[in-house]
Each structure stands twice: as C-alpha cells, then as structure tokens.
Write a protein that binds this DNA or RNA. Structure first.
Length: 261
DNA sequence: ATGGCATCTAACAGATGA
C-alpha cells in the first residue's frame, strides 16, 4: 500500500499536474493540502474518472485539504469538531484536517498553519493549533481501532538536517524551538518519521521557495512529513520525496512525499 | 537586509504563503 502527501498550492491550478502524477504514481491514497477551493467547486470528476474517490474539506481562497483514494474511506471525519466537540468549531473555520480509514489504515491529513514569523499573531495561532491537534490525536488514540498515519504539510523542519542552510535559524519560522518542541510533543504519543527510516542524511527537501531560484539552487526545507505509528513504521519498505513535479512548468512549491507499506 | 514569486479575490492591489 502506498500513501502520499502533496501540498499542491491550489487544486484548480494544479489539477492537470496531479492527474499526470497519479498516472505515473498510482498510489492508493493521496493527501492534498492548500486546495484553496470550496467543496462545491472541487474538481472531483477528473479524479473519479481515474478511479479515485475524493473527500475534501475546503474553503474559499485559503487552506483546504482533500484525500484521493483508490478505495472509499470508512469513518471519514472533517475538522477537529467530530472528536473534540462543539467547542472546537472555531478551530474548524480554517479547513486544515481531514481523515478516513483506508485499507485498514487511519490516515490523518494535516495542513499545519504557516505562522508568518516568530512572535507574530499567526505564530501564536500555529502553536495553539498544534495544542488542539495533540488533543485531537489523543482522542483518536483512545478510540483507535486501526494503525494511524499522520501526513501533510507541517510547516516545521524538525531538525537542522532538514534545512539547506540551518545556521542561525533559531528565530526563523518553521525552525524555531517552540515549533519543534510542539511537534516533538505530538510525536511522542507514538509516531516516527517515515522518511528518516531510510535517509538519515541532510539535503532532502520537500519545499523550495518560488523566489530567487530556490529549487534550481536546491535551497529547500523538509516540511512535508509522513509519520507512522510503531506498527506501520515496522511495515514501511520505502519512503521518498518525488522532486520531479517541482521541476515542471508552473509547479507547486512543494514536492510529493510517498511511503510504501 | 531586502525582495524576490505565486495564488487568490464581490480583484487589477493587497493578503497570504513559508
């Protein structure tokens, strides 16, 4: 079974590229972030023609997540509220969480807030959102029937080896110690980095800035992740970042990450 | 250091992203 994650930076702008990528990489599950479209306008038909089921949780202009899958999901949920209750509904105004059980695996697709800059109002929102996520995952673990895979755009480089030039990044968004601590705290509930099972060295990135030739100069960050619980981690046979679509015309600024179980 | 690039919108300038 293959599970992939890809921040597409607008599904309507990237629809043809996602189709082309799926034709070459017929993964079982593809988690998408930054779909940037309301549910009524999600372009589901071309993916259905390819044989993929679609579930999505979107909004106008910003954020938005979706899961494409060869088999239909069981127990799909959108947002935090299904597990955290009505008091979490404010957190669901931004569409950043969607999950379902696919071929026996609970896949949680996440678009973690960017955070703007350290100290910004949005930075506080990011840290508080991660605290909500921890509560949500604790609820999920309590009710768990299946192994759990967390994947998505985390907007956090967990370690210095995940940044092209890590020196002096303590105060940088995506690398600050509080962000890294919040992520580590969540992972301590029982998840490990699928990519790092196979590639311990630096120089592997999933996002490159559009500006200043970030991709051509390989000035990247590894901020898109697939986290596996211990059972899935043991089952993982490969995990790769596919840089190819980042080199296409009009690309997303993120590359897909794929794990094989 | 700054800005650079891309996408979106009751758009054509401003917000957001990371």
């Amino acid at each position: 079974m293959e599970i992939a994650t890809w921040n597409v930076n607008s599904i309507r702008s990237r629809q043809e590229q996602v189709i082309a990528w799926l034709q070459a990489n017929p993964v079982d599950v593809l988690c998408l972030q930054e779909t940037k479209v309301i549910d009524g306008a999600f372009p589901a038909a071309p993916f259905q023609e390819l044989g993929y089921h679609c579930q999505f949780f979107g909004q106008k202009a910003y954020n938005g997540v979706a899961i494409l899958s060869r088999k239909p999901p069981e127990n799909a949920m959108r947002g935090f509220a299904p597990l955290l209750g009505a008091e979490a509904e404010d957190w669901d105004q931004q569409k950043r969480v969607i999950t379902g059980v696919y071929q026996g695996v609970r896949v949680v697709n996440l678009y973690v807030p960017n955070g703007a800059g350290v100290g910004d109002e949005k930075y506080a929102y990011k840290l508080n959102w991660l605290a909500q996520l921890k509560q949500y995952l604790q609820e999920l673990l309590t009710a768990r029937d299946e192994p759990i895979c967390l994947c998505g755009d985390f907007n956090i480089a967990p370690e210095d080896r995940d940044i092209y030039n890590p020196e002096g990044k303590e105060g940088h968004i995506m690398a600050s110690p509080p962000e890294r601590a919040a992520l580590a705290d969540i992972l301590s509930l029982g998840w490990q980095d699928g990519f790092r099972k196979f590639a311990p060295d630096s120089g592997h990135f999933s996002w490159w800035d559009y500006r200043s030739g970030g991709f051509a100069r390989n000035r990247g960050w590894r901020i898109d992740h697939i986290y596996l619980d211990s059972a899935l981690y043991d089952q993982a046979v490969a995990c790769r970042i596919d840089r190819e679509p980042r080199g296409w015309e009009k690309p997303s600024d993120h590359a897909p990450v794929v794990v094989a179980l």
